[in-house]
């Protein structure tokens, strides 16, 4: 009677998903892989090029520059948005009607389409017309984001912080509100300072959620395209040309499909690898 009965029918249920994933992800990805090893001049004629495009991309200073810009941008974004998000979440009311008011306010920026965000900030920051532009110029700074690289970076970062900090706030707030009162009461009785309460109760309880927030913000900002494209178009010069903007320029502007495909795959691997390393580190730390 030890015969094991296994039912193989269940596999059929997976088929629709497999097909869907094939159409959505695998086929386009394989097309890109295909392009990245070949040269084409149209008419569906391809020539094998081996790793030529990869070498070209990895050696080009243009790629190095946009990768560096990308890394700096993402780092600044994370350094600002995560602590700021946590701080706002801590400052938010714990109960009463103000909770829902704050939550709605926080959710608003997340609901605006990305290109609209770009357009909004474009107008908002215009040196003569925009409110922000006029205020900054009024304070005596020479501010014009279409001309000065520093101003362009400042505006792009401000825009991203405005757009995405609330995501961190909402996640952190959810984690904070799941901490039972008894923890705060025990800490009070133990004579803990507010800093100790944050360090030993709130931060540990937020850790999982913050891991996810950092991961999401990393991936999103590393792949940022629409907002800076609408705001600055990658300029002035190339100063705000991040990886994906550069990629689009190569692929669609110059129609260099081979290098663009190679760059896409390198880009993809960077995001995947970084996310994986980051996640593993955080999870290992958790187990210790």
């Amino acid at each position: 009677m030890a015969r094991k009965t296994t039912n193989q029918k269940a596999w059929f249920l997976v088929i629709p998903v497999v097909l869907l994933v094939a159409f959505n992800a695998i086929i386009p990805l394989m097309t890109v892989v295909n392009y990245s090893f070949q040269e084409t001049f149209g008419d569906n004629v391809f020539f094998w090029e081996g790793v030529k495009w990869y070498e070209q991309v990895l050696r080009s200073s243009r790629f190095h520059d946009s990768l560096l810009r990308q890394i700096i941008f993402t780092s600044i974004i994370l350094v600002i948005e995560i602590p700021l998000g946590v701080a706002i979440a801590l400052a938010m009311p714990k109960k009463g009607i103000w909770v829902s008011v704050c939550l709605v306010l926080m959710a608003l920026p997340l609901l605006i389409p990305w290109n609209v965000v770009g357009a909004m900030w474009n107008i908002y920051a215009l040196p003569e017309l925009g409110l922000l532009g006029r205020i900054i110029n009024g304070m005596g700074f020479d501010y014009n984001f279409t001309q000065g690289p520093l101003a362009a970076w400042f505006t792009t970062i401000m825009m991203d912080v405005w757009h995405w900090t609330s995501l961190v706030v909402l996640l952190a707030y959810a984690a904070l509100s799941s901490i039972p009162d008894a923890y705060y009461q025990a800490a009070k009785i133990d004579g803990a300072t507010p800093w100790a309460v944050f360090r030993y109760i709130q931060l540990p309880k937020m850790k999982r959620v913050l891991t996810i927030a950092i991961l999401l913000r990393f991936m999103d900002s590393f792949m940022i395209y629409t907002e800076p494209f609408v705001l600055t178009g990658g300029g002035p010069g190339n100063t705000t040309t991040f990886l994906s903007i550069d990629l689009v320029k190569i692929a669609l502007g110059q129609f260099d499909l081979g290098p663009a495909a190679a760059m896409s795959l390198i880009y993809f691997l960077i995001v995947l690898l970084t996310s994986w390393i980051f996640y593993t580190l955080m999870m290992n730390n958790e187990e210790k």
Partner: peptide, 30 residues
Amino acid sequence: DARNIAQVFQFPVVYDTMSVYDNLAFPLRN
């Protein structure tokens, strides 16, 4: 905290990231 009382709650409250030693030392360190 100024009353010098201790309280044990229905659900155990421990500082998760600390060792048992640090947990016990916490009120004194504070």
